[in-house]
Amino acid sequence: MAHLQDQLDLITENTRNLVQPERLAISDRAVEELFTTGIEQHILPVGAKAPEFELPDATGRTVRSQDLLALGPLVINFFRGRWCPYCVTELEAWRDLYPVVREQGGLVVAISPQTQRQSDFTAGHHKLPFPLLTDFECQLASQFGLMYSVPDYQRNYYRSILVNIPFVNGEESWRLPLPATYVVGQDGTVVFAEAYADFRVRPEPEEVLAPLLARQR
């Protein structure tokens, strides 16, 4: 299977071949400004206790972190929404690795601010076997240190390409999470944590799974 980052880099390459440089510069500016805030350095770190959560899945059923952790260690993927090709590519990578996670006794959940209806579309279209949870207004993402607000100039750009984030998220705040991946042990301790201000970069799933696999040896 191709490395996830290679797949994401191909999306970036194709985008740069198709989109005018002045439009690309908007996303590049937003990434650079977000990076300079130091947000990557303030995410919930390895060794911290992960916040407990109770969030609705795509069917409206409440999913509780305590119930999941009673069954095994938990991989948590925070993603921006179904409108982001990088996010859905990453979700598909986790879909393909899901049997490996389950063989090791682990579970996966993916969390975004999009509505339950949008999550239902996402799960069905991409055939995702794990729960997609709705984090309204990025309240949980904020507890993980991941929440930010899309700047005005980038909002205008998203509107121009018909990415209607307030509609997708069901509210007007324009809050999004940094794309992030966590592994939480059954005692609630974070054993892997990575998040990037650059939405075009994600950790390799095999790297994420290393702590989980190590605990099974």
Rank of each mutant, 00 (worst) to 15 (best):
E22S: 09
V201F: 00
R23K: 13
V63N: 11
A141P: 00
N17C: 09
L212H: 03
L71T: 08
G145K: 06
A214H: 15
A180L: 05
Y148K: 03
Q143H: 11
V75R: 02
V19F: 01
V88F: 09
V168R: 06
Y158L: 07
G185I: 01
L8S: 00
E204F: 03
L178C: 07
P203E: 14
V75F: 03
F136V: 12
A214M: 09
S112K: 00
I39M: 14
F167G: 11
E90P: 00
D57T: 06
S160H: 07
A195C: 07
A123S: 10
Q118L: 07
H126S: 11
V201Q: 00
S149L: 05
T59V: 05
Q118T: 04
E33Q: 15
E171D: 08
L74W: 02
V101R: 01
R16Y: 09
R16Q: 08
S173T: 10
Q20H: 09
A48K: 05
P205D: 13
S112I: 00
I26D: 01
Y196G: 03
W174R: 02
R16K: 15
N164G: 06
E194S: 14
L91H: 04
L209E: 02
Q118A: 13
C138E: 08
T36R: 12
C84N: 09
I111N: 00
V150Q: 06
L176E: 07
W174P: 02
M147Y: 09
Q186N: 12
V191G: 13
R16W: 14
E103A: 07
G170L: 04
P211L: 13
W94T: 02
Q118Y: 09
V150D: 10
S27I: 04
V150K: 03
L107K: 01
E40M: 11
T122E: 12
A48P: 03
G145S: 13
F79N: 01
K49M: 14
N14W: 12
N156K: 08
Y86C: 12
E137W: 02
A50D: 04
V101L: 02
H3Y: 10
N156C: 06
E103I: 01
R217G: 11
W174D: 01
T181Q: 11
R82D: 08
F35P: 04
A30T: 15
L4G: 04
E22I: 15
A70V: 06
E90D: 03
R16F: 07
Q143F: 02
D57N: 12
F79S: 05
Q104H: 11
L140T: 05
L69G: 00
E54T: 15
I26W: 07
S173E: 11
S112Y: 01
L128I: 13
L34F: 09
A70K: 10
Y86G: 13
D6R: 08
V168W: 10
I165G: 03
D6Q: 12
G106C: 01
I26R: 10
T36I: 14
G105E: 06
I43K: 04
F121E: 13
Y98T: 00
L107C: 00
H42W: 10
E171H: 07
I161R: 05
S142H: 14
P45I: 03
R29S: 14
